[in-house]
Design a protein around this nucleic acid. Structure first.
Lengths: 178, 178
DNA sequence: ATTATCTTTTGACATTTGTAATAAAATAAA
DNA sequence: TTTATTTTATTACAAATGTCAAAAGATAAT
């Protein structure tokens, strides 16, 4: 069993979620400049995490059903972060705050281990992501991500996928046609 | 004190390093396809970590004095990795293997905490790196990295920095002139 | 110190991707 | 279901970055 599902099951069975948040289409769960040390579980719908650097918007992650989502930098260092988290359609998420989460993690050595492996997995994913973005040909970037995350291309509108893939929607459109 | 220096001090004082490796200029510490679960400490010199995707080489990290270096994917999942680690000049590194490292980490709860914060820091660094690479203007990419890591531009030849910055050496040369 | 090798710079040119405007299609709202 | 809104596709064009070749400069080896 993968560590994330394991973690979620444990949080569920101990009923640790603080509350549920319902977001309408395009609504923000978090905006730039705020501190957000919550951890979210997507129950339904989808959302994206993005940043704005010098007037350009970069989508860095998507979340859909059963994904754990956070403003990870803010979650880890408890400082304000530049991230925006936006619902792409009507979305429901469960919330747990960091304090409660930490005490849950520290309550058992299994839980500590699980959290460590989630972090390790995240590092591995980020390393893949680094290679995705470094790839210079837009077609190759598209292929790499399509192969690893085909579901993404169902759930998410092309303009956000284009942003995630470091290209314009026009370029993505041309790639899909060819 | 930062967690990495703390960790290094502890490994030093317990004399846990297995051995020292001396690399000549351009020599490889690791090549594609191999499993390498060692952790290295750079004592002197400099090196780079890179991958080759579809005939293009991408530099993803540099190491110099007092940096901890690993084929992180291989270190974490114990599988073969695509990474190359190459010395850019005569370089000395200390080595500790994962098994020994793990038992060191597990030998105290302080050590566990330190390793956790190193991983968390690494995640934060990777998130910065993601934004660096996503930035579409080569000049802005250059500025971001120059600001955060000015020493890099002393130690390392431009052609590798260019590769790290996702541009050709010609483009980097033009940016520096302007 | 001299020579050989590797790195950086420069310029002309080609190619790729972005921009902007519009039309078509799909999706959401009334 | 109809209308309004949003997303995708398409086109012509512009701009930016890469490619290639050559020269200059720097570094390493003898």
């Amino acid at each position: 069993m993968n560590p994330i599902s394991n973690l979620i099951d444990r949080i569920n069975s101990q009923k640790l979620w603080d509350r549920e948040i319902v977001l309408g289409r395009n609504e923000y769960l978090k905006v730039k400049g705020s501190i957000d040390t919550n951890l979210y579980l997507v129950k339904s719908g989808s959302l994206r995490i993005f940043v704005i650097d010098e007037y350009e918007e970069h989508t860095i992650r998507f979340g859909y059903k059963d994904n754990l989502i956070a403003s990870l930098d803010s979650f880890l260092n408890e400082k304000p972060s530049d991230f925006y988290i936006q619902a792409l359609k009507k979305t429901n998420v469960n919330v747990i705050n960091k304090k409660k989460y930490k005490s849950f993690i520290e309550s058992s050595s299994e839980n500590k281990e699980i959290w460590l492996s989630i972090l390790e997995n995240f590092v591995l994913q980020q390393m893949e992501r680094e290679r995705d973005i470094l790839t210079s040909s837009p077609i190759e970037r598209y292929k790499r991500v399509l192969e690893r995350s085909p579901q993404l291309f169902q759930e998410i509108p092309n303009k956000y996928i284009a942003s995630y893939l470091r290209m314009t929607p026009e370029t993505l459109s041309r790639i899909k046609k060819s």
